[in-house]
């Protein structure tokens, strides 16, 4: 509201500068999500190409994956997506505390996801399964490529989880300081969009890397 009244007070001349454009902000966020989608898109394309070429090697390699941890992580991310959505709904209803609580929950989910990932990776690295590692020496080309892509794609995804957590932390500070309110919450909405994108990418990574039997 404050920004709106500013616009009114200062008259028409400077509207373009002061004017808050939620729709434009959302549009920019979507365009940014497209760039993220295509960033991962290149990797998905590589995955598709190599899976096409080395179908058997991929199956052998995927057999070593623990699909239970993958499924747990999927549920964690889906739940965190729910809590972000609920946080926006709470913000709309001016329930600041609930909105903050939901974001705290989201952050916990994100950290839980990363901890799972950490154990998963360290288990594999312990077994020598990493690019250039001893575990890959006797493997076929398909398996080596599978693990190469596995590390790059889940690694890049993990990086996005971390960025998302930082993004959400900033948003929580804004909410606590009343910079984000029930009438001015596009920033929260954008953080939500980002977090959902991270979720969507995982929705595809999960079956591609864990459910190949």
């Amino acid at each position: 509201m404050t920004e709106h009244s500013e616009v009114l007070n200062q008259g028409e001349t400077h509207a373009a500068h002061v004017h808050r454009d939620d729709e434009g902000s959302k549009m920019a966020m979507w365009l940014f999500l497209f760039t993220e989608l295509l960033l991962f898109g290149g990797l998905f394309l590589l995955y598709g190409a190599y899976r096409f070429e080395y179908a058997d090697g991929f199956k052998v390699a995927a057999a070593e994956m623990n699909s239970f941890i993958g499924a747990v992580n999927t549920i964690i991310l889906l739940t965190s997506s729910l809590s972000v959505a609920l946080s926006i709904a709470a913000m709309q209803r001016n329930q600041k505390k609930l909105a903050l609580a939901m974001l705290w929950f989201t952050i916990l989910c994100g950290i839980g996801f990363l901890i799972n990932k950490y154990f998963e990776w360290s288990h594999e690295i312990h077994n020598g399964v990493y690019p250039g590692g001893p575990g890959l020496e006797n493997m076929s080309n398909g398996e080596v490529l599978y693990f190469g892509l596995y590390y790059v794609m889940t690694g890049l995804h993990g990086l996005h989880v971390i960025i998302g957590l930082i993004f959400i932390s900033f948003i929580m500070v804004f909410i606590a300081r009343d910079k984000i309110t029930s009438t001015n919450f596009q920033k929260l909405e954008n953080a939500g969009l980002y977090w959902h994108l991270v979720d969507v990418i995982w929705i595809f990574l999960f079956p591609l890397f864990y459910l190949l039997h």
Binding site: H4, V7, L8, G11, E12, A15, A16, H19, R20
Partner: peptide, 9 residues
């Protein structure tokens, strides 16, 4: 509404 009128864009 007020914003709409204010910047008339």
């Amino acid at each position: 509404l007020t914003t709409g009128q204010a910047h008339a864009s």
